[in-house]
């Protein structure tokens, strides 16, 4: 893998405008203490952040592309998301996963109204809009209106099914496989699967 691009510094501050927040100072102090006591090393922290940036965000697309290509795997994914990911070689660590499938009749969309619970080991860090109060408050009240703002307009006969990820489970949407993708490799299929489609705010198509 090419490694000539720059990484942000270990504490994630790629700009130095203003003073660090209280939470940032607390986090740094905690890390320094844990390093001092030999519980973790700075290298482990850096490595972990690299995973979040470079590995985790692409896992979801690979899993769902595999589910599109292999109907038996799809069944296992829908029955138990964590076990299916483990079989595919992806350890979701603490995340317990429910995969929900979009059909011609049902469209799924995920939110966490209490904070920003998100399947991080599968999709990486949640996008800013997912954490915003605007999205969290409105998608449970007016999902069709919010989806429309993402360019997703659903006919009335399609049931919108909102998932509040408010406790111990995490969710991923299995979108419908677009027409015209017969015979595509999983890698090519994965290219259609954006993060937003796996949260359910967009619908993957071949004309992106």
């Amino acid at each position: 893998m090419s490694h000539d691009h720059r990484h942000p510094p270990a504490h994630g501050r790629d700009h130095e405008a203003g003073l660090p927040s209280e939470h940032e100072i607390l986090s740094r102090a905690m890390q320094e203490l844990l390093e001092e006591k030999g519980v973790i090393t700075a290298e482990q922290v850096r490595r972990r952040m690299e995973q979040f940036d470079e590995d985790f965000p692409y896992r979801g697309a690979r899993v769902i592309a595999h589910a599109w290509a292999d109907p038996e795997f799809r069944k296992r994914l829908l029955a138990d998301g964590k076990a299916a990911c483990a079989e595919f070689g992806i350890d979701l660590e603490a995340d317990r996963l429910i995969a929900v499938e979009n059909t011609a009749e049902v469209h799924n969309v995920v939110v966490c109204t209490l904070c920003s619970c998100y399947p991080r080991a599968l999709l990486g860090m949640p996008p800013t809009w997912y954490k915003s109060e605007n999205y969290r408050k409105r998608v449970v009240r007016d999902p069709r209106g919010v989806l429309k703002e993402f360019g997703t307009v659903l006919p009335d006969q399609v049931t919108v099914r909102v998932h509040d990820s408010n406790a111990d489970m995490r969710y991923v949407v299995v979108p419908m496989r677009p027409r015209g993708t017969e015979g595509w490799s999983e890698e090519r299929l994965a290219g259609l699967l954006t993060r937003d489609a796996l949260v359910g705010v967009t619908i993957p198509g071949t004309n992106q």
Binding site: Q157, V158, H163
Partner: peptide, 10 residues
């Protein structure tokens, strides 16, 4: 929205 729209919560 539609009368059949759903929300699921833990």
């Amino acid at each position: 929205g539609a009368a059949h729209d759903l929300i699921e919560v833990e």
